[in-house]
Amino acid sequence: MQIFVKTATGKTITLEVEPSDTIENVKAKIQDKEGIPPDQQRLAFAGKQLEDGRTLSDYNIQKESTLHLALR
């Protein structure tokens, strides 16, 4: 499925993911596309910060959802 990640600079990244993917996997995909190390990424959805060990389906993130990326 496709999801979107909006960066602090307003850029939107499109990612191909599975509901079973962990947040860690998603951060690795962002690193592949943007070169941002996962340990510098903070992802949020619906106002909640997402934890590495959880999956997209844990957070009820569905196709075409938009996550927000902040850098630490």
Rank of each mutant, 00 (worst) to 15 (best):
M1F: 14
M1K: 02
Q2G: 06
I3Q: 00
I3C: 02
F4W: 06
F4I: 11
V5A: 04
V5M: 03
V5G: 01
K6W: 12
K6I: 15
K6R: 10
T7Q: 06
A8Y: 07
T9L: 12
T9N: 08
G10A: 13
G10E: 09
G10M: 10
K11W: 14
K11P: 07
T12W: 13
T14G: 12
T14I: 08
T14F: 07
T14M: 07
T14A: 11
L15G: 00
L15I: 08
E16K: 08
E16N: 13
V17R: 00
V17C: 04
V17Y: 05
V17A: 06
E18Q: 09
E18G: 07
P19H: 06
P19D: 13
P19S: 09
P19N: 06
S20P: 06
D21G: 04
D21W: 14
D21M: 12
I23W: 02
I23A: 03
I23Q: 02
I23H: 02
I23G: 02
E24K: 09
N25M: 07
V26Q: 00
V26H: 00
K27S: 02
K27F: 02
A28K: 13
A28G: 10
K29D: 04
K29R: 10
K29C: 03
K29Y: 13
I30N: 01
I30G: 00
I30T: 02
I30Y: 03
I30V: 06
Q31A: 14
Q31I: 02
Q31W: 15
Q31F: 11
Q31C: 04
Q31K: 06
D32L: 14
D32N: 08
K33V: 15
K33G: 06
E34T: 09
I36M: 06
I36R: 03
I36F: 14
P37Y: 05
P37N: 12
P37G: 06
P37H: 10
P38W: 13
D39V: 08
D39N: 08
Q40G: 05
Q40K: 09
Q41I: 15
Q41L: 04
L43F: 03
A44N: 15
A44H: 09
A44T: 11
F45G: 02
F45H: 08
F45S: 03
A46G: 12
A46E: 15
A46L: 08
G47C: 04
G47M: 04
G47A: 05
G47S: 06
K48M: 10
K48E: 10
K48L: 14
K48A: 15
K48Q: 06
Q49D: 12
Q49W: 09
Q49G: 11
L50E: 00
L50C: 03
D52K: 04
G53L: 13
G53I: 11
R54S: 07
R54Q: 09
R54P: 05
R54Y: 13
R54T: 09
T55N: 05
T55W: 04
T55S: 08
L56A: 02
L56V: 06
L56S: 01
L56E: 00
S57L: 08
S57C: 04
S57P: 03
D58N: 09
D58V: 04
D58Q: 10
D58P: 01
Y59V: 02
Y59F: 04
N60K: 07
I61V: 07
I61Y: 01
Q62K: 15
Q62R: 14
Q62C: 04
Q62H: 13
K63F: 11
K63P: 14
E64C: 05
S65I: 04
S65W: 04
S65M: 12
T66N: 05
L67C: 02
L67D: 01
L67N: 01
H68T: 11
H68P: 01
H68K: 05
H68A: 06
L69D: 01
A70I: 09
A70P: 02
A70E: 09
A70D: 06
A70T: 09
L71H: 06
R72Q: 10
